[in-house]
Design a protein around this nucleic acid. Structure first.
Lengths: 128, 128
DNA sequence: ATCTGATATCTGTATATCCGTATATATGGA
DNA sequence: TCCATATATACGGATATACAGATATCAGAT
């Protein structure tokens, strides 16, 4: 049950929920794109990503200069249920704005992930 | 998304998770039975119940001297998903002990809810 | 080796949360 | 009305968390 508490604590912050919903939408993106979309300073984004990683909710991998984050493949049933719940509930209005901002960043060439890092992996919902 | 954060914060505490699992198991019980089962002081239980109530996760109703708490009928999809998740994940070892303690309290006549308040409503899993 | 861009960590401060203890409120009975 | 039981709330201290700003690390290019 201790682990479950850790999971819920990780989910108890608006910025972290926005990040998770962004990852649901985009699949895998770099930290600087999160800064762009969320409008948060770099240190803040990085700190929250560390928390999500320690809670076992996201994975990271380095790709050149960048670090790309994505949702984990859920290991236990709690995580699976949590991620399913997040997908189902959608995130509300604030996240709709984030999604719009990501789309704009892509269209205006300000998105690194789908601009220069891996343009071929752009998700359906974001492709023009 | 603000509401979602509130929900997760309410879930980010071991005592509160134990209470929720207890309510899943017992259906509706009074505060003093929770004290007995959880082994927590009255004020602590009451405080956590207030937090769960403010988060919209539990309902309460007065029955004479006692106040009986139960899980809400979920209003929105986030709550429904959360409660479903709690039911599915089961709560782990610590809660198994709580369940045992509830059973013992019933058998030894120390449980108010199913001893004097509403003995006819004792759940299947607890009946001898 | 040095420079630059991207990301992570440290530090101090403000705020939030949790807990134990004490006190208040509510209900029913003598 | 007074008492006993059940529950809720207020207060103060300890710990945890979030943030901004500064600094450190890391990878690649020159």
């Amino acid at each position: 049950m201790k682990e479950t508490v850790k999971t819920f604590k990780a989910l108890s912050d608006e910025t972290r929920l926005r990040i998770l919903h962004l990852l649901i939408e985009a699949g895998e993106i770099c930290v600087c794109d999160m800064e762009t979309v969320l409008g948060c300073p770099q240190a803040k984004v990085s700190r929250h990503l560390t928390i999500l990683k320690n809670a076992g909710l996201v994975d990271d991998r380095r790709e050149g200069l960048w670090v790309l984050y994505s949702l984990v493949k859920p290991a236990d049933s709690t995580h699976a249920a949590v991620l399913k719940m997040l997908r189902e509930t959608g995130g509300g209005e604030l996240f709709s704005l984030d999604k719009k901002k990501l789309l704009q960043a892509i269209q205006q060439g300000r998105c690194k992930t789908f601009g220069v890092i891996k343009p071929e992996k752009i998700p359906q919902s974001m492709a023009r």
